[in-house]
Amino acid sequence: MSNNEHDVTRRQFLNYTLTGVGGFMAAGMLMPMLRFAVDPLLQNKTSGKMVAVTNVSQLTNEPQRFTFKVKKVDGWHTFEEQKIAYIYKKENGEILALSPICTHLGCTVSWNDPAFPNEFHCPCHGGRYTKSGINIPGTPPPEPLHVYDQKVKGGTVYLGEDHPRGGS
């Protein structure tokens, strides 16, 4: 039975097998290195612990600036990152902890700037937010200030990660 159309020459056969075997060996060599290199992409995100920031009794209806330190592990380097939160009690008694990182380009906003009373104002490009952190239309920020996870335990306010709130 002739099978000429599907015949593989000796040369082709050797080409395919040697390329295959060679490719397999090269992959065996390169795969660990590539996995090694992309490791940061596949590391589990460690959600930081909540950190005690202040006492509930300190809070008022006016946003106040608090700084707190979060322990960070960056590979072989461990350090404390300083973070800032503006915290106040809403009318209904709920606690709101805002991150002062401007959602426009990441400058730090401040509360109650003499020129912009009762607002958060960003000095870089004039971004403005209301007291509850909602960006004021017509200013650069595309979304509200991020909000910290927070809990109150034994009269102490603990803060965690900050998250976007969505909306605009």
Partner: peptide, 23 residues
């Protein structure tokens, strides 16, 4: 200050670190 720590990290904390360093 850091060379030994970085080697320890890459060998023990990074995936396949032991293999790549071993190679």
């Amino acid at each position: 200050d850091r060379a030994w720590d970085s080697v320890f990290y890459l060998q023990n904390k990074v995936a396949y670190g032991q293999i790549v360093r071993g190679m």
